[in-house]
Simulated assay, not measured.
Amino acid sequence: MRITITVEDPTPEIATFLLALASQPTATVTTEPDDRWTPERARAYYNLLPPRARQILRTVTDNDGHCDATSLRQGERNLRGTTGAFRRILNEGARKGLWPDALPVPVLSVRYNGAVASFSAAPDTYEVFAQALQDGD
């Protein structure tokens, strides 16, 4: 039988209890950091983003983790303030307990001469978001 227990921010009493339980002769304990995006977390995060940040995230996931900023500036639209939404929503969700603090920002901006040149996401991140968003908005 395999039992998996996830405890976020355990109290000292709970940590002591779990360590005592794990010290039983037949127990095997493995720890895994909770710093990965899951489809459920990705969808919840996406739903909280403002519309422009959603568009950027969707474009990045649709283009294998990369998007040139020029394509997002069509019609004289600038990208000022859009990149801050990614970190702000990540921090707000962590404070509300929607996901752990250790999650990385899913979309990063690449700057050239002070302006956003492109957006990118790590392969494991954009693949999870692509899976989470496959059913559409």
Rank of each mutant, 00 (worst) to 15 (best):
D9C: 02
D9A: 10
P10M: 07
P12N: 03
E13M: 06
A15M: 09
A15L: 13
A15C: 01
F17L: 15
F17M: 12
L19H: 12
L19V: 10
A20P: 00
L21C: 10
A22E: 10
Q24E: 12
P25G: 06
P25E: 13
T26N: 10
T30L: 11
T31D: 02
E32F: 05
P33W: 00
D34S: 13
D35M: 00
D35F: 00
R36W: 04
T38G: 05
E40Q: 14
E40D: 13
E40W: 04
E40P: 00
E40K: 14
R41H: 15
A42P: 01
Y45C: 00
Y45H: 07
L48A: 11
L48I: 02
P50T: 05
P50V: 09
P51W: 01
P51N: 06
P51Q: 07
R54A: 07
R54Q: 15
L57F: 08
T61M: 13
D62M: 10
D64Y: 10
D64K: 11
C67T: 12
C67I: 13
D68A: 10
T70L: 12
L72Y: 07
G75H: 10
G75A: 07
E76Y: 11
R77G: 02
R77N: 12
N78S: 15
L79E: 10
L79G: 10
R80Y: 09
R80K: 14
R80M: 02
T83S: 15
T83M: 09
A85C: 08
R87A: 12
R88D: 10
R88S: 11
I89M: 11
I89K: 03
G93A: 03
G93S: 02
A94G: 05
A94N: 03
R95M: 13
L98C: 07
W99E: 02
W99T: 01
W99G: 01
P100C: 02
P100H: 02
P100G: 05
P100M: 03
D101N: 11
D101R: 14
A102S: 14
A102Q: 11
L103P: 00
L103N: 01
P104I: 01
P104W: 01
P104H: 05
V105N: 12
P106N: 06
P106C: 08
V107M: 07
V107A: 03
L108W: 08
L108A: 12
S109P: 08
V110I: 14
V110H: 12
N113H: 13
G114M: 06
G114R: 09
A117T: 02
A117E: 15
